[in-house]
Simulated assay, not measured.
Amino acid sequence: MTVSDAYSPPLFSIAPMMGWTDNHYRTLARLITKHAWLYTEMLAAETIVYQEDNLDSFLAYSPDQHPIVLQIGGRNLENLAKATRLANAYGYDEINFNCGCPSPKVSGRGCFGALLMLDPKFVGEAMSVIASNTNAAVTVKCRIGVDDHDSYNELCDFIHIVSSLSPTKHFIIHSRKALLSGLSPSDNRRIPPLKYEFFFALLRDFPDLKFTINGGINSVVEADAALRSGAHGVMLGRAVYYNPWHTLGHVDTVIYGSPSSGITRRQVLEKYQVYGESVLGKYGKGRPNLRDIVRPLINLFHSESGNGQWKRRTDAALLHCTTLKSFLDEVLPAIPDFVLDSFAFKEATGREDLFADVRRLLPPPYGKESSKALERMPTRPVILDEEE
């Protein structure tokens, strides 16, 4: 039994987003949903290793954030092994390896992220190294392809090789390929076409593995549609950041079938204020500052009465407020009481038929001849540090 077995299954998870899914945002998200799986921002293994004396500021989180997944990236096996061991003290429920980030900082100079999909043998080795240094489950997040390496069989080769060489049995699939030159990370989230048919074909061709779908899903209604169509899990990103209340507020009831918590945004802010005051400046040199702590709150009243004034007051208040209490005292009058004290009503927006025709578009099955992909891969030694 893994630690993650103690929690609801990862039917719904919040994507790791650089600069966004920090400890502050995850604290807010957990106040709204008790069951969604939370992911950290991607942390390079080198960062964890080189910041060994300052790990709390990168890896610490409150116990109520469980279930929580640490996403790491990197290409050096020694650093991946050491970073995993250092993270063990923090008790993450899973460790996820990033094979999907198209950022030039990662796939270019860093030589990891989505670029690793072109080296599945290494990814399999890396996952074995990570798994051998932790008791947590290990997973991979990837794209459906990279540049011109975007055929369904190439995706299957990647899945087959990684799962054959390591204990990895769960893949989070962003259903767009990555274009590593000519497109920014934001363009890579919208310009390459979504190919949901590749994802659902993986369910058919790898029945012993688990797959979570990611990309282009913007509401709990659409997440539920994916699950009803056979996905083992659904991951949402920007939608839950830009509209946290009207997405996360429905996860527990719609996805997990749990009773509504009955929490209001006024109560969420009261709890978040306690958290914010406790961490303000905690790590020295003014880190985190008030702006860091307030940032996850900006979209809490998305599309509600008073939202525009709330955002204008926020900009002004951050110029002079020094505590979260003083900030909230100044900006909250912009929001009517009926908004502050209302519950998350049942969500009715979203494309319930998003995956209705996907089975008709499935590519041909991954042939048995493709199972020889592992034999075609060159053998490379796994290099570990002396402690191994």
Results as ranks from 00 to 15, higher is better:
293 I>G: 08
266 R>C: 04
46 E>F: 13
174 H>L: 00
387 E>R: 09
228 R>P: 00
162 V>P: 12
332 L>D: 04
140 V>F: 04
280 L>T: 10
177 K>F: 00
250 H>N: 15
207 P>F: 02
61 Y>A: 10
124 G>W: 02
118 L>D: 12
21 T>K: 01
154 E>A: 11
37 W>H: 13
111 C>F: 14
364 P>Q: 04
172 I>M: 06
49 V>Q: 11
66 H>P: 03
343 F>C: 02
193 P>N: 01
294 V>K: 02
119 D>T: 11
226 A>Y: 09
90 Y>L: 09
203 L>W: 00
21 T>V: 02
218 N>M: 13
248 L>R: 07
69 V>R: 07
143 R>Y: 09
10 P>Y: 02
229 S>M: 11
124 G>Q: 03
134 T>Y: 00
23 N>V: 14
377 M>G: 03
370 S>R: 14
142 C>E: 00
278 S>R: 04
110 G>P: 01
156 C>N: 03
21 T>F: 00
347 E>V: 14
232 H>A: 09
219 S>N: 01
105 K>V: 03
118 L>R: 14
288 P>H: 06
63 P>G: 09
269 L>I: 10
183 L>R: 10
180 L>K: 03
200 F>R: 03
181 S>C: 11
265 R>V: 06
33 T>G: 05
346 K>A: 10
376 R>F: 08
206 F>E: 11
11 L>Y: 09
31 L>D: 10
229 S>N: 05
293 I>T: 08
27 T>I: 12
136 A>S: 14
356 A>Q: 13
337 D>L: 03
371 S>G: 07
235 M>Y: 07
356 A>K: 13
101 C>P: 01
106 V>Q: 02
158 F>A: 00
106 V>L: 05
318 L>K: 11
329 D>Y: 00
285 K>V: 01
30 R>C: 14
325 K>G: 12
100 G>S: 10
160 H>Y: 15
328 L>V: 12
21 T>H: 01
339 V>E: 03
124 G>T: 02
326 S>E: 13
77 L>M: 14
314 T>C: 11
380 R>D: 05
300 L>S: 00
227 L>W: 10
133 N>H: 12
29 A>Y: 05
119 D>L: 02
241 Y>G: 01
41 E>I: 11
74 G>N: 11
176 R>D: 04
328 L>Q: 13
210 K>P: 09
